[in-house]
Computed example of a mutant assay.
Amino acid sequence: MKRNISKLDKNIRLIVLALIAILGLFNEFSLSVASVLGALSILLLVTVLIGFSPIYALLGISTYKGK
Rank of each mutant, 00 (worst) to 15 (best):
K2Q: 14
N4Q: 01
S6P: 05
K7H: 15
K7P: 07
K7V: 11
N11Q: 15
N11R: 12
I12T: 12
L14Q: 08
I15S: 15
I15M: 14
V16R: 02
L17T: 13
L17N: 15
A18V: 08
A18T: 12
L19G: 15
I20L: 09
I22A: 14
L23D: 03
L23E: 10
L23P: 06
G24T: 05
G24A: 05
L25H: 03
F26Q: 12
E28K: 10
F29P: 02
S30N: 11
S30C: 01
L31F: 15
L31R: 13
L31D: 15
L31Y: 13
S32Y: 12
S32H: 12
S32L: 07
V33I: 09
V33A: 11
A34C: 08
V36Q: 01
V36C: 01
L37R: 05
L37K: 07
G38Q: 06
A39G: 13
A39N: 10
L40Y: 15
L40P: 04
S41L: 08
I42L: 10
I42T: 11
L43D: 11
L44I: 06
V46G: 05
T47L: 00
V48Y: 02
L49Y: 11
I50W: 00
G51T: 01
S53A: 06
S53M: 00
P54G: 09
P54A: 02
I55K: 03
Y56M: 03
A57N: 08
A57W: 10
A57Q: 12
L58I: 01
G60Q: 08
T63I: 08
Y64T: 00
G66C: 12
K67I: 08
K67G: 09
K67A: 11
K67T: 06
